[in-house]
């Protein structure tokens, strides 16, 4: 049975590019994506959690080793997601897009990546780290 943290961690291997900083950024990416997930409307949050479980279980029937998504290796995960995308089933595409969107948001918003993409803001405009850290609490409780 998948939980959001395990699932997002497994999904990160599919969504994020392979760059040297990736490992250092992974924990923060996961924490931020979980915060975003936790703030979604309660009904959507419940649907996503159910979809994560089904997606994970669906991996058992997939030919790459016949195991849950969260226990596949990265190559198998990538093939699985690509196969699902080829099926062109709207709700599944929406699910993949939202999950990858949350992770991509968290990843590309990490200032450590910005020099690689040429993004920079004048230092005198940035007031770094001033929204208190409790807002980055990775808990996903929605009740």
């Amino acid at each position: 049975m998948s939980n959001p943290e395990k699932f997002l961690q497994a999904f990160m291997g599919v969504v994020l590019p392979k760059i040297p900083e990736q490992e250092a950024m992974a924990q923060q990416t996961l924490a931020s994506a979980l915060v975003m997930l936790g703030a979604l409307p309660v009904r959507l949050h419940r649907v996503l959690r159910a979809a994560m479980t089904l997606f994970d279980l669906g991996g058992i029937g997939y030919r790459c080793g016949g195991r849950p998504f969260t226990r596949m290796n990265v190559d198998q995960r990538q093939r699985y997601v690509a196969w699902i995308q080829r099926l062109q089933i709207g709700p599944l595409l929406d699910f993949i897009k939202l999950m990858s969107g949350l992770l991509m948001f968290a990843f590309y918003q990490d200032p450590r990546l910005w020099p690689r993409i040429g993004y920079a803001i004048d230092a005198d405009i940035i007031k770094q780290g001033v929204v208190r850290d409790e807002h980055l609490d990775p808990r996903t409780d929605s009740q």
Binding site: M36, Q109, V130, V131
Partner: peptide, 26 residues
């Protein structure tokens, strides 16, 4: 209440703090 001097360039912090549902209400 987030004051001007506390606005962050880091959207990972500001979006869940300032937007309803992290800005995603379908």
């Amino acid at each position: 209440m987030v004051k001007t001097e506390a606005f962050s360039s880091d959207a990972r912090r500001s979006i869940p703090t300032l937007y309803r549902h992290s800005g995603i209400t379908p």
